[in-house]
Design a protein around this nucleic acid. Structure first.
Lengths: 179, 179
DNA sequence: TGGAGCATGTAATGAGTTACATGATTGG
DNA sequence: CCAATCATGTAACTCATTACATGCTCCA
């Protein structure tokens, strides 16, 4: 009885990826064009969650298709603003309450170290030194920023960065004996 | 004079991505099939640099095209082993000495917190608690592993994991007041 | 007034994950 | 012997980056 084996295409709330959700979040206070969104994401999310322009356009197009967002009519060809729809607001709220996925931590240096048998000690030392310097510099710049921020998510994020860089430096200094 | 505007396609050493390089590294001690490589990568690189089977096959095919690796003749259809070529060994050595790229750290929880204004406090607390538990569990399992390892890259990697998880927990407890 | 830079967007490519397919092995 | 599992590989899709294109504005 093949006729009984169909699958109902149940409606399910459009699943958001993190990037799309972030865009919806930014659209909550008013329509923005792709370019403006991209700039807003850079400013608001900064280094810790990068979103490229291409992603913005891709996600906007996709969300327009699923009705989470609506293109506003606008001037001749450029500056096409998009507004969040009620469905979009709901999708955003749902996303906010979903369990966040696991952290992604990918450290190219670690991969090189894994094959460290093939790395001569001098070069290894050089490598470590240069990487360490980068982390130290980042830590310093975070520490400069930090006092300027009031309480809130921005500061929480920066604090994370500070703790991360400190942990990395300690690893260099105490576990990798690179100094 | 259009004829003068061609570009010479200069030869450049095939650039390796980290995944391809890791495979070459594993192939240094002898030919392996895609499946074996995938297993070897899982075992040797573990959680901290994941490589899926699909990636393995893609990279093997690409490297076979560029001559970094050569398909060994073998039994009927399955278990096609690949051997690293001299060019492959050189590419690997070069890669080892390149400057590693920047760390990628992507934390979905941070993105949610960034829009924390829209998150009611109860739910925020719940979110934090569940995330914190995951990190604590991972730290515990790392700490169990650690004493079993002799000195070497594996232990260095694990130490990194331990420091990372500790930093995250401290962030939860001291900066996010989640406990 | 023409070119530097900015605002806006598209295309091409790379990297990663998930789901699917298929023959061999093997334990109950 | 036959069902489960393993070994092997492929296909399709999503996500992310890099490079390219094009019109506008503004000031030297």
């Amino acid at each position: 009885m093949d006729r009984l084996t169909w699958k109902v295409k149940v409606w399910r709330a459009p699943v958001l990826n993190a990037t799309a959700a972030a865009l919806l979040g930014l659209l909550r206070d008013g329509p923005l064009s792709g370019y403006q969104l991209s700039a807003a994401a850079d400013a608001f999310l900064g280094d810790f969650w990068t979103v490229t322009r291409s992603q913005v356009y891709r996600e906007l197009a996709a969300m327009a298709r699923t009705g989470l967002v609506a293109a506003q009519p606008s001037g001749a060809r450029d500056k096409q603003p998009y507004a969040i729809s009620p469905a979009g607001r709901e999708a955003f709220r749902n996303w906010l309450h979903e369990e966040p996925g696991p952290d992604v931590v990918r450290i190219p240096l670690l991969l090189r170290l894994a094959f460290g048998d093939a790395l001569d000690p001098d070069h290894r030392a050089e490598l470590l030194a240069s990487q360490r310097a980068g982390h130290a510099a980042r830590l310093a710049s975070y520490m400069l920023e930090e006092p300027k921020l009031g309480p809130g998510p921005q500061r929480e994020t920066l604090r994370f960065g500070i703790r991360y860089e400190r942990a990395v430096l300690a690893w260099f200094d105490e576990d990798l004996r690179a100094r």
